[in-house]
């Protein structure tokens, strides 16, 4: 599903983010990316959705070298790869329903299809009763669930989660993790960057540890630290 072949990334200011990273993530895998801040976790995700281009090496997603995608193909890639963030990135002046529908509108999905898919996905994340609420009226956990609903409403092949529990309390974090696991079981590959030791240790999934831009550890059913 996702392959990194000797990928290095140096930013224009000279900062080295990744160095000769080799990584293979098969379909329906669940991977935690761990490591200190600046280790390269976010850069790795940005390369997957082609927010950044590798300085060296190849990033292949769903059989396609993302660096070679035509400009018009990038949006199509991003519809196959959902993303959620620590700060949720919701539109504050739009309701829950509208925030989720937004992802379908930009893909020019028909209104009828939107009316069908949005309630189903809101039900999946347990927010069908909050469809007309604004993000400001929701708790952090609920906002992250809206963000999650928006990320998976396209039925993406991959879900990238960049510190999704960073702003949440432990109980809410667990709820989000349960949802991510459910989404993973539906056939979506999940790649999650996190600093949350407790969650990583509890979930017993594959753990890829990065340090100084290198993969220093890659183990199945791993733990946060050695």
């Amino acid at each position: 599903m996702i392959q990194f072949h000797k990928v290095s990334k140096v930013y224009p200011n000279g900062a080295l983010a990744l160095l000769k990273v080799d990584l293979h993530i098969p379909p329906v895998d669940f991977v935690f990316l761990v490591g200190p801040s600046g280790a390269g976790k976010s850069t790795l995700m940005k390369l997957i959705i082609r927010q950044e281009l590798p300085s060296e090496g190849q990033v292949v997603v769903n059989g396609k070298n993302v660096a070679r995608l035509r400009k018009s193909e990038i949006p199509l890639l991003r519809r196959k790869v959902g993303v959620i963030f620590q700060d949720f990135k919701l539109l504050p002046d739009r309701t829950v329903w509208e925030n989720v529908a937004f992802a379908l509108e930009v893909a020019e999905v028909s209104p009828r299809e939107i009316r069908k898919r949005v309630p189903a996905i809101l039900q999946l994340v347990g927010l069908e009763h909050k469809a007309s609420a604004l993000p400001g009226e929701l708790s952090g956990g609920e906002q992250q669930r809206v963000s999650l609903a928006r990320a998976v409403v396209h039925n993406p092949l991959v879900l990238l989660a960049d510190e999704p529990t960073g702003n949440l309390d432990p109980a809410t974090s667990l709820e989000i993790m349960e949802l991510l696991e459910r989404i993973n079981l539906r056939g979506t590959t999940v790649v999650m960057a996190t600093h949350n030791r407790e969650i990583v240790d509890r979930m017993k999934k594959r753990v890829v540890a990065l340090e100084g831009g290198r993969v220093v550890r890659d183990e199945q059913k791993g733990r946060y630290g050695r």
Binding site: K71, R78, K89, L91, F102, A103, V106, A107, E108, A151
Partner: peptide, 16 residues
């Protein structure tokens, strides 16, 4: 700008 950032993340084309 926030809306545009999200649009790009969820796969809006440049023309959109």
């Amino acid at each position: 700008r926030r809306e545009i950032e999200i649009m790009r993340l969820v796969g809006a084309s440049d023309s959109y």
